[in-house]
């Protein structure tokens, strides 16, 4: 087969994209403390350190609390907004939707500093809760974008048919609409979760005394001794992400197969 320049480009692109991720586990199992070749020997010490580290455990717990809350909140808000924007007409709709989607393009540092000013002004103490608020603000536009696609592909007469057959508006939503947009809801929840989990700037500004995973990792990067452990942590996160994405994709495809809908692209 001819090795065309286009194929070469694609190959380099993939190397550029994935080489750092491949290096993570390599150094996570390397017994040397310096991140450099040649490798010294195999060890599980860094993983032992990782699981013994209580500050890290707390940071992880905080991050999971924030990410799960953000995921639920932004997806719930996203469902309402996507439903409103695909199903109803009301004055000022374009303007309202535009404003909701604006955080997509606002620099995070602007969001973080303005939120900080507002929270301090109203006298709300900085905590995990304020981080959740900030992350929800950031993740909701993404959730709406994903859910809008799911809602707008619904045939409106499905709703009318259920209503016509004696169901109420609420039971129609529960029995017909919700099951059909479930793949979209899964995608949205997963995306919001990921956005929140690795978000640094807003978390750093709004967490007060609390620590989240990215804040902890960033703080440890200053200590070269800690870097192999961070590599081990990174390895765990990569594995967890792959498992999570694969699970979500499995459910999404199963949902598609059940309704016979056309696959319009998922994560994998």
């Amino acid at each position: 087969m001819k090795f065309s320049s286009l194929k070469g480009y694609a190959f380099l692109y993939l190397v550029f994209l994935y080489a750092p991720i491949v290096l993570l586990p390599v150094f996570a199992f390397n017994s040397g403390t310096i991140i450099a070749f040649p490798l010294k020997g195999f060890t599980l010490d860094w993983f032992r350190d990782l699981f013994a580290n209580q500050t890290l455990g707390l940071a992880l717990k905080n991050s999971l609390i924030i990410a799960v809350s953000t995921s639920i909140l932004s997806t719930t808000l996203g469902v309402f907004a996507a439903r409103a924007s695909t199903r109803f007409k009301f004055p000022g709709k374009t303007g309202v939707m535009g404003l909701i989607m604006l955080p997509l393009v606002l620099p995070e540092i602007i969001i973080a500093s303005s939120l900080l000013v507002v929270l301090l002004a109203v006298g709300m103490p900085l905590s995990l809760f304020t981080v959740i608020l900030g992350h929800t603000l950031m993740a909701t536009p993404y959730a709406i974008a994903v859910l809008n696609a799911a809602f707008s592909s619904l045939d409106r007469s499905l709703e009318e048919a259920a209503y016509d057959l004696g169901e109420t508006k609420w039971s129609t939503f529960r029995l017909i609409i919700l099951p059909l947009v479930t793949p979209g809801i899964i995608s949205s929840a997963l995306m919001s979760f990921t956005i929140s989990l690795d978000e640094f700037i807003v978390a750093f500004s709004l967490a007060g005394k609390e620590t989240t995973l990215p804040i902890y990792i960033f703080s440890q990067l200053r200590f070269p001794k800690q870097i192999p452990m961070i590599m081990a942590l990174g390895t765990c996160l990569v594995v967890a992400s792959i498992v999570l994405l694969a699970t979500a994709e499995y459910f999404r495809r199963r949902g598609l197969a059940k309704t016979g809908a056309k696959d319009t692209g998922g994560f994998l």
Binding site: D155, L158, E160, Y163, D164, L165, L180, G260
Partner: peptide, 20 residues
Amino acid sequence: VAPNKRPTNMVFQSYAIFPH
């Protein structure tokens, strides 16, 4: 009288078969 209380039923142009 709301649609779900009327003595009428409808066959839609798209059939509106519940796909799930």
